[in-house]
């Protein structure tokens, strides 16, 4: 069997590229990454959609072990079509497969091996040739049942592999093999009874949502303005004779009927349409309950008015009518929807603000002239003019001009940063001082801001495990409630002492009304929507809802030392002149000599000498690994390592001992050793405070480092970390994380580098700090854009708050719904307590409003 994929990688390990079938989402990527990282000997794992896993591992890791790890979590590694289809995978080291490194695309499943991929299951046997994702707006959904309906409608489209609908964000996201026809998605959504409008020219997604929401609000307001007063009159007409001697007689009943008709038919039109559609679709939802409840109340009353002889009468009385109930229910639910729509508008304003940070237009310089163009029309390489005070429209590199920029919206970093030609600037940051010309590099969804928005959207679009449960409950809930309502009717018909038909009917209607699962449907999404948007503004990006749940339950935080707890770059910590020498002189000469160098140690020296007038250096010669020589003020200066200075001074080795954790640079001139400079990686200013806050949150903090214990100890002490795991090889980081997990801890790993990626994937929650590499950011579940470790504590505290609000919301929803049902069914009737349909409607509307209001607390 030919081995094609394993090859020596740059880092010395062996690299294997495997095709992976059945992955549809980031969740799958996470599972596969985790599985591969846990194979002993694996150093680095990179899994990407549509289906590739790149693994760097030791030479003794068999390919079969990797394949087995992938298959164990439910995904497939397709074989080369030519290979023997039933050859056992674990048999030989080769496995017979050929990675996509040669461009050979897997064709079909060679043999049915392993369990089918977990959610969402593949539809048909179509392998993931090219997976594409498409997201369209969906409006008109009002509860968790609608979510199911839309998802099923989308899954019916050929080629669609998974569909998820976010009720709060009003979006449907679909993954499919091959390209997805957006019109097909819209058609499916509209056929299911919902709307998916196309954006007008120049209209952004959010404008579209805003437009839909304001149309919704004005629709509801219109109906409320008309139906509200009518219903109030009906209620007065119905109630007044009960509490006062006034008697309106027969005309009062007719007036009630005439006034209720428009309320029920026009005001409640959406409920009626929704009810009819739900029966046709065989998918019950909240409108089914409301429509049924109001129609039964209204229909009964009309019948009682027109043909009282058809209904049983009690002791010669006219059968009672319930016009006021029908009218009040319609108005109360309209009011609930209205308040909810307004609150939701406020909730999504947070994202809107984020989007508004990206300018829509840019001034592009072509030839001599400036052209004002839409940002979408800028292409990489275009020169964009930015005036002082403006936001920079694109990610790019400064080509002309000097300024400082405020990049706080993108990075969360509040201090202005100086920029000069050659420096990178991020779209969305504010140009504070000078006019700039920026050469565009990354645009649209590739830009830093675009990536942030995508992560936020993904997090909001993903469904928390709690929510998945709520959705499932909701789809069964409605038929069950209808059953309970019918049973209530039957039982009270038999049990009621007087007016059996009437009390049976009233209670059945109350059950229908109180049980609406709308609050259940919005409990989680609204909290996530508000919470993640606020997090994003603080520079905390959470990838999905499940990670948010995990983040709230983490109990140990593992921090990588270099680059995470520390700055990751050396800075000068001491100047030690030889006896009789002046410390300032030593530094001045060293800095002058090092000024032109890009070496990190040289930068540290020059930075330490900032503010000093440095003389010019001539004849600078660098000796790699040794140091450099230069002529400064006529003197021949050497700056470099112990070995370098010994050579330079022909054998005279410096006497002072090396210091653990610090790097020494020796400075000599005129053939004599003058002193040494000590540089060390120092902890970030925010580290100490961050560690203290994490401890306050009840978390253990562990420092993980490749340095020796002696070198790591001072840093740990300074940061306030008590537990240090030192001498860790990069490839062992993930193992240490897993050891902590094995002892029953929930581990958050904070890292920044490529070498942290396996540990980030292995941890329950990977958090990448913003200065980190792209790989770390892609692997981690939480990205912290601020270069401030306080963000770690902020992120965990935020997740806890969001989780708490989600639980409160579910509690609100469940209490209203489930506690309401037995009350409405008349369980407490023997004790004289009966929940009338009108109060049921009020309780139901209240539950939605309280859930949304509770979620809005997160925005503060």
């Amino acid at each position: 069997v030919e081995h094609v994929t394993p090859r020596e990688s740059d880092s010395g390990g062996v690299e294997t590229v495997l095709p992976v079938e059945g992955m549809t989402c980031d969740h799958c990527v996470g599972r596969v990454t985790k599985a591969l990282s846990s194979v002993p000997g694996v150093a680095e794992v990179q899994v990407s959609l549509p289906g590739t896993a790149r693994v760097v591992h030791g030479p003794d890791v068999p390919r079969a072990a990797l394949i087995e790890a992938i298959e164990d979590v439910g995904y497939d590694v397709p074989k080369e079509p030519g290979a023997a289809p039933v050859e056992p995978v674990a048999g030989g080291g080769g496995g017979g497969g050929r990675g996509p490194a040669r461009g050979a695309r897997p064709r079909g499943r060679a043999a049915a091996r392993g369990p089918p991929p977990p959610p969402p299951p593949p539809r048909g046997a179509t392998p993931a040739a090219t997976m594409s994702r498409q997201s369209v707006p969906v409006y008109g959904m009002h509860c968790a049942s609608c979510v199911n309906t839309v998802e099923h409608a989308l899954l019916e489209i050929p080629g669609v592999q998974s569909a998820y609908v976010n009720l709060a964000a009003q979006r449907a996201t679909v993954t499919a093999a091959g390209d997805i026809d957006e019109t097909a998605l819209r058609k499916a959504i509209e056929d299911a009874g919902y709307q998916s409008p196309v954006a007008k020219a120049g209209e952004r997604q959010l404008d579209l949502e805003e437009r839909a929401r304001s149309e919704e609000i004005s629709y509801l307001r219109r109906r409320l303005v008309v139906a509200g007063p009518l219903a109030a009159i009906v209620v007065t007409l119905a109630m007044l004779p009960m509490v006062s001697p006034v008697d309106f007689g027969a005309w009062g009943l007719w007036a009630q009927a005439a006034l209720t008709l428009p309320v029920w038919a026009w005001g409640g039109a959406r409920f009626l349409r929704g009810m009819v559609a739900s029966f046709r679709r065989r998918a019950a939802d909240m409108y089914t309950l409301i429509g049924l409840g109001t129609s039964v109340a209204f229909g009964w009353s009309v019948l009682a008015l027109l043909a009282p002889s058809w209904l049983p009468t009690h002791e010669g009385h006219h059968p009672p009518v319930y016009f006021e109930t029908a009218a009040a229910i319609v108005v109360l639910i309209l009011l609930g929807n209205f308040l909810e729509a307004r609150a939701k508008g406020r909730a999504s304003r947070a994202i809107r603000e984020l989007l508004d940070l990206a300018p829509r237009r840019a001034r592009v310089i072509r030839g001599e002239a400036e052209f004002d163009v839409a940002v979408e029309d800028v292409v990489p390489g275009d020169l964009v003019a930015v005036r002082p005070g403006e936001r920079i429209p694109v990610d790019g590199v400064v080509s002309v001009g000097r300024t400082s920029v405020d990049a706080s919206v993108v990075t969360g970093e509040s201090l202005p940063v100086a920029k000069e030609p050659g420096d990178e600037v991020l779209g969305g940051s504010v140009n504070l001082e000078g006019a700039l010309r920026v050469e565009a590099t990354r645009l649209g969804s590739d830009s830093a801001l675009g990536r942030i928005l995508r992560l936020v959207e993904e997090a909001q679009g993903s469904r928390a495990p709690v929510q998945r449960l709520a959705d499932q409950v909701a789809s069964v809930f409605v038929p069950v409630v209808m059953s309970i309502a019918i049973a209530t009717f039957g039982l009270w018909y038999v049990l009621a002492a007087e007016d059996p038909l009437v009390s049976a009917l009233v209670r059945a209607v109350a059950v229908l009304i109180v049980a609406c699962p709308c609050a259940l449907g919005i409990a989680t999404p609204t909290a996530l929507l508000v919470g993640t948007a606020r997090g994003a503004r603080q520079g905390i990006l959470v990838r999905d809802a499940a990670s948010l749940e995990t983040a709230g339950s983490v109990d140990v935080v593992v921090m990588d030392k270099t680059g995470t707890l520390t700055i990751g770059k050396p800075s000068l910590v001491a100047v030690e002149p030889m006896p009789g020498e002046d410390a300032d002189e030593v530094l001045r000469f060293a800095a002058a000599a090092e000024r032109g160098s890009e070496h990190p140690l040289a930068l540290a020296v020059v930075q330490a000498a900032a503010g000093k007038a440095l003389p010019e250096a001539h004849d600078v010669t660098a000796k790699p690994g040794r140091g450099l020589t230069a002529t400064v003020e006529g003197r021949k200066v050497f700056v470099g390592s112990r070995r370098g200075v010994a050579e330079h001074l022909s054998g005279e080795a410096p006497g002072a001992a090396e210091v653990a954790g610090k790097t020494a640079m020796y400075v000599a001139w005129d053939g004599k050793l003058r002193g040494r400079l000590l540089a060390a990686d120092t902890i970030k200013a925010s580290a100490k405070e961050a560690v203290r806050r994490l401890r306050e949150l009840g978390l253990d903090v562990v420092m993980l480092t490749g340095d020796t214990a002696a070198a790591a100890e001072p840093i740990a002490r300074e940061a306030g970390v008590t537990r240090v795991i030192a001498d860790v090889l990069p490839e062992d980081k993930a193992r240490h994380v897993r050891e902590l997990q094995a002892s029953g801890r929930k581990v958050a790993m904070v890292g920044d580098g490529l070498n942290d990626a396996p540990a980030l994937a292995a941890a329950d929650l990977g958090m990448a700090v913003g200065t980190g590499t792209d790989v770390a950011l892609e692997t981690a579940k939480v990205a912290l854009l601020r270069d401030d470790l306080g963000a770690v504590a902020d992120a965990i505290a935020m997740s806890r708050r969001i989780n708490r609000v989600v639980r409160q919301n579910l509690f609100f929803a469940f209490v209203y719904n489930t506690a309401g049902i037995p009350l409405a069914a008349g369980l407490l009737a023997p004790f004289g307590f009966v929940l009338s349909p009108m109060f049921a409607a009020a309780a139901m509307a209240m539950s939605s409003v309280s859930v949304v209001t509770n979620s809005l607390r997160l925005a503060r």
Binding site: A284, P479, V494
Partner: peptide, 30 residues
């Protein structure tokens, strides 16, 4: 129990079955 009470109870049972079959049955949208 009067005959019409029995009739209502039977009607309720049939209605419950119908609702559940319709919305939760094999061809429903669930």
């Amino acid at each position: 129990m009067s005959p019409d009470e029995i009739a209502v109870l039977i009607g309720c049972v049939v209605a419950i079955l119908a609702v559940n079959l319709w919305f939760l049955g094999p061809r429903s949208a669930r």
